[in-house]
């Protein structure tokens, strides 16, 4: 049985204090009555009220959610397809270029991705707005999805697919009934990753958007560029809260699923 040594306990406490104190500070100050950070003028939820009455933030939140839902869904389909091609399609001409185009966006600086897409959209005369942000987010998010899904596909027992084909399933049925259920957890985490990346993106959205579509990160960025804003503290607290609930419930769900599976397997072993 391992225990914490004093060194490890100190390293971990200092490390997690560093990771979490800034967020705790934001949460605490979102309840501060005063606009100034220095002065603690008493507990108040008035900034939340101001935030929810501010139509611009609500509109931006809606645009962001719309963009994230659309781009992460398209990116999941395209990314899963791309992963399938990478792992299963074997050799085809242009395969090196294809895998290069999957991995390059992961390391490409955001300013370059944003600039290049904007120049494309202007070049083909596409009006900038929700559609262009969705196209931009889909493109870089599908690469993340395909990396997540292809690592699952690579460790997958291929004989299951072959068995389905031998038993008369069409390739599409074998994909739908055998492959997809097995890679589903990777597909779901790919979707979540794509969704979060889209919600979070400032740089690419700033390049590819037009006056008609302002996303929440663009709004937050222009509000905090010059200083501290109590409304943004409240908004941050709401976002941190939502993410925390999401991550904790997801991890509880996977834990429960693992326990249930272990119980099923034991029951199956007994009979």
């Amino acid at each position: 049985m391992r225990r914490f040594s004093w060194f490890n306990a100190t390293a971990l406490s200092l490390g997690f204090a560093f990771l979490y104190l800034p967020m705790i500070v934001l949460i605490v100050y979102s309840f501060n009555e005063s606009r100034l950070v220095t002065v603690w003028a008493g507990f108040s939820t008035k900034w939340y009220g101001e935030l929810l009455r501010n139509q611009e933030y609500l509109d931006a939140a809606w645009v962001t959610l719309k963009v994230a839902l659309m781009s992460s869904t398209i990116a999941t389909v395209l990314g899963t397809l791309a992963a399938y091609v990478l792992v299963r399609a074997g050799r085809f001409s242009g395969r090196t270029l294809f895998s290069g185009m999957i991995y390059a966006p992961l390391v490409m600086p955001e300013v370059i991705t944003g600039l290049s897409l904007l120049l494309l959209f202007i070049g083909i005369g596409l009006d900038r707005g929700v559609l262009t942000i969705v196209l931009a987010h889909t493109t870089f998010a599908m690469c993340y999805v395909s990396v997540v899904v292809s690592s699952r596909l690579a460790t997958f027992d291929r004989s299951l697919e072959e068995a389905a084909l031998d038993l008369g399933a069409t390739p599409f049925d074998s994909f739908r009934l055998v492959t997809l259920p097995i890679i589903a957890p990777a597909v779901i985490s790919g979707w979540l990753l794509a969704f979060t990346l889209s919600l979070d993106d400032l740089v690419i959205a700033s390049f590819t958007t037009g006056p008609s579509a302002t996303t929440l990160p663009i709004k937050i960025f222009s509000a905090v560029r010059l200083g501290v804003s109590p409304e943004i503290n409240a908004l941050s607290t709401i976002m941190i809260g939502l993410v925390t609930i999401g991550v904790i419930s997801a991890s509880l769900a996977t834990k429960r699923a693992a326990v249930a599976r272990a119980r099923d397997e034991q029951a199956a072993a007994r009979t």
Binding site: Y20, P22, M23, L26, V37, I220, I240
Partner: peptide, 17 residues
């Protein structure tokens, strides 16, 4: 967990600090 929370907000937090 911090990775899932907004990058922009985590940078902004240091402005407050």
């Amino acid at each position: 967990l911090p990775f899932w929370t907004s990058f922009l907000i985590r940078v902004y937090a240091w402005k407050v600090i």
